[in-house]
C-alpha cells in the first residue's frame, strides 16, 4: 500500500498546473468503466421497458414508464422449453443443487487439504498432482462415460447425479485452497496436540476447523458462484426435472416462436445473475481472495 508517496506528481510536467498524465489516466478509466458497466445498464433498462418501447427506443434509452411486468413474466410465466412457469423452478433447482454441492465439496476439500498439508500420507503428492490435472482437463473428456455410468445405475437425470458431478470436479480447487492455507499456518499446534495424544480427526475438529473460518468463507463463495453459474453439468446430468437456472435461461432465450420478448429475456438474465452478483457485492474482498487463492472457473 505504501508504494510511491509522490505518485500523484508522476506523469505531470513539473511546474505546469495541468497534469496531462492524470487526464489521460482518468479518460482511460472512464472509458473502461463505461465498457464494463454498459451491459449491466442495458440489461436493467431493457428489463424495465414494455415491448412497444423496446422496439422503438434505443437500447441505451431510459424506460419512459418503468415496469416490473417483464420481471414478473420471466419469473412465473415465460416458457423454458415445454413448460411455461417461468424461471422460478430453475431458481429452486439451482438452490437444491448448489447447497449440497457446496457443503460436500468444501468439507471434503478441507479434510483432503488438511490431510495433505499436515500428515503427508504416502502418495499425497501424486494424488494432489492428479487432482490438479483433473481441474484443467476439459469436462468433455469425462462427460460421456459419466452419463453412461449414471444411466446404468439408474442415477441419470437425478439431483444426486448433478451434485455428485459438482463434487467430483469442485474438489481440486477446494483442496488446493485449503492445502495452501494450511501450509501458511504454524505446524507446531498440530505437533503439540499430537504429543498430547490427539488423533487425526480430533485435531481437525478442535484445532484446524476453528482456525479455518476465513478460508471456509472463501471456499464457500468460490464454490457457490461456480456451481450456480454452471451450465454444462446441469444440462447433461439434471434431466428436465432438475434444470438449473442457467439451463432454463438458455432455453427461454432460444425459444423460436414469434417475436422475441427481449424485455423478458433481459429480466430473466438479471434474475439468473442475481445470486452470484449479490454474493460478489456483499463479499468484495473475500471474492478477490478466492481468485487469488487459485481461481479456476468451469
Amino acid at each position: 500500500m505504501t508504494t510511491s508517496p509522490t505518485a500523484r506528481s508522476r506523469g505531470s510536467r513539473p511546474g505546469t498546473g495541468l497534469p496531462v498524465g492524470r487526464i489521460g489516466l482518468w479518460a482511460f478509466i472512464l472509458l473502461t468503466v463505461l465498457f464494463f458497466l454498459a451491459p449491466l445498464y442495458v440489461m436493467i433498462v431493457t428489463s424495465l421497458k414494455t415491448m412497444d418501447e423496446v422496439r422503438l427506443s434505443s437500447i441505451f434509452a431510459l424506460p419512459m414508464h418503468p415496469t416490473f411486468e417483464a420481471w414478473r413474466f420471466a419469473w412465473s410465466e415465460a416458457c423454458t422449453g415445454i413448460e411455461c412457469h417461468g424461471l422460478q423452478s430453475g431458481f429452486w433447482n439451482s438452490v437444491r443443487i448448489t447447497v449440497p454441492s457446496v457443503a460436500v465439496s468444501v468439507l471434503l476439500g478441507a479434510i483432503s487439504g488438511y490431510a495433505l498439508s499436515y500428515w503427508k500420507p504416502r502418495g499425497g503428492e501424486i494424488l494432489f498432482a492428479l487432482l490438479m490435472v483433473g481441474a484443467f482437463i476439459p469436462y468433455q473428456l469425462f462427460i460421456y462415460p459419466l452419463a453412461f455410468a449414471f444411466a446404468k445405475t439408474g442415477l441419470a437425470n437425478t439431483l444426486l447425479a448433478v451434485v455428485m458431478v459438482h463434487v467430483f470436479f469442485g474438489l481440486p480447487i477446494v483442496t488446493l485452497i485449503f492445502r495452501n492455507y494450511y501450509a501458511g499456518l504454524p505446524h507446531e499446534l498440530v505437533k503439540a496436540a499430537q504429543i498430547d495424544g490427539a488423533g487425526f480427526w480430533r485435531i481437525f475438529r478442535s484445532i484446524i476447523l476453528p482456525l479455518s473460518r476465513p478460508i471456509l468463507v472463501v471456499a464457500v463463495i468460490l464454490q457457490t458462484t461456480g456451481v450456480w453459474n454452471d451450465f454444462l453439468f446441469g444440462l447433461i446430468f439434471g434431466g428436465t426435472n432438475n434444470q438449473p437456472m442457467t439451463v432454463q435461461l438458455n432455453a427461454l432465450v432460444s425459444a423460436q416462436f414469434g417475436e422475441k420478448p427481449y424485455n423478458v429475456h433481459m429480466a430473466a438474465t438479471i434474475l439468473t445473475a442475481l445470486i452470484p452478483l449479490a454474493i460478489y457485492l456483499a463479499s468484495g474482498r473475500w471474492f478477490v481472495r478466492g481468485i487469488a487463492a487459485g481461481a479456476v472457473k468451469g
Binding site: 464494463f36 451491459p39 453459474n229 435461461l249 427481449y262 439468473t272 445473475a273 452470484p276 460478489y280
Partner: peptide, 28 residues
C-alpha cells in the same frame, strides 16, 4: 472502480452470452 471491473467475472458465461447477444443484435 475495482468492483466495476471485476463484477462480470462473477456472472456465468450464459448470462454473458445472452447480454452481449442483445447488445450486438444488428436490428435492435
Amino acid at each position: 472502480i475495482r468492483t466495476i471491473y471485476l463484477y462480470p467475472y462473477a456472472l456465468s458465461f450464459i448470462v454473458t452470452g445472452v447480454v452481449w447477444k442483445w447488445m450486438l443484435d444488428p436490428t435492435m
